[in-house]
Nucleic acid binder design. Structure first.
Lengths: 207, 207
DNA sequence: TTTAATACCATACATTTGTATGTGTATTGG
DNA sequence: CCAATACACATACAAATGTATGGTATTAAA
């Protein structure tokens, strides 16, 4: 699967993704040629054929802008970016902080909300299922009991937020997972935003 | 919110959205003409100009598939909720679609689908909570295991649908509720539609 | 009645677009 | 050394594409 893309091919792929997210549709061969300074489209055609051969795009023959991206789905990159950073440490400290999230790429993001896909079972008693998409607003102040997305030592967690007199509690709805208790001034904690909505598509799997 | 658009224009807009979400790029004029049986593209051109004049799309002149959806600039779109499903009770239809919800535009709303608010606990093991809004598509054939909204002798139920050799089973995720077993030809059963998505707004309640 | 939209058709046209073919260079692995 | 690959160029062409113009019919408002 991961046949290495050359540097040029990688740049072209990234350009395609960029155009698609910004304009809403993929570029033509001429667009790509123009962006990279190529003097004709045949060069681009060769690169696209190579990229397709390596499985990163699918092309619809003879159809203008007929480039489909072969990524996991339309809204998310398949890699959980956060959590890689701290490689293991948060997992050992907080065994329940295993929720990973995926950051959106292709979706057109609004001004102040963004999407995360939840993985892990720790919130299933809050009726949030692994695979659900949560809508996060960083500008909504977290009130007690609200479900928040937080960065805890570079690991992402989705939990209920409670501000007590002297400390902050991050509770999981699932009793199998421990409540995380932190000093109010603990620097490893950053509240990313409040979960304002949850969306689940049933189109594919049965859950 | 679809004020101003004629029926034809609305259908074309929906077709554009559908194509874009499925293929990843908007249709050409010829695509639209083909889908609606028009014999030339000029007709489509007129409709697109009307739709653009009313502010629902933006067009990039002389550029193939240069249709941008203005909906995508908004993250949430108000949608009417048609009624309410409470297990065991008849479907209650809200008289004039008074109740609306801010639905994220990433939520797939296929043509002809509608929204219902779920009441009751019978599906909480399927991670559907009382108060959740389900997106129901009446035109999707229910596959085994799909969650469906059904009318059983005028009582509404939201359950998993299973078609067996000789009978139909409606199962609840919650073991406290019994599985309903029916003859295939039983006339009191009417499948209203398949649940294709779920959305939960966190605005007020904490769960 | 006139006016104005809406809705659809036919024809036409300049570009754009994907694709094919051929030439050439540089780099790399066997 | 040779073959293979990546990279870029030029030219060519059929088909597709957006657009313009003009025509007909229906409906609703002024």
């Amino acid at each position: 699967m991961d046949k290495g893309l050359t540097e040029t091919q990688k740049n072209i792929l990234e350009y395609i993704i960029e155009v698609k997210t910004e304009r809403g549709y993929p570029p033509t061969l001429a667009d790509i040629a123009g962006a990279f300074g190529y003097k004709n489209r045949a060069t681009v055609q060769q690169h696209l054929q190579a990229i397709e051969r390596k499985g990163y795009i699918r092309r619809n023959p003879r159809i203008s802008r007929g480039i489909e991206l072969c990524l996991e789905d339309k809204f998310f990159v398949p890699r959980p970016i956060l959590g890689e950073v701290a490689a293991g440490n948060p997992l050992t400290i907080y065994p329940d902080a295993i929720d990973t999230i995926e950051l959106p790429t292709i979706a057109r993001m609004p001004a102040d909300s963004f999407l995360l896909r939840v993985k892990g079972e720790s919130l299933k008693d809050a009726y949030i299922f692994s695979g659900d998409v949560v809508i996060v607003n960083p500008n909504v102040e977290a009130v007690n009991g609200a479900i928040v997305v937080a960065l805890l030592d570079d690991a992402a967690v989705v939990k209920r937020y409670f501000l007590m007199n002297d400390h902050v509690e991050l509770r999981s709805e699932n009793p199998e997972y421990q409540t995380i208790s932190l000093d109010k001034k603990y620097h490893g904690l950053r509240i990313v935003g409040t979960v304002v909505g949850i969306y689940r598509s049933m189109e594919r799997k049965t859950g």
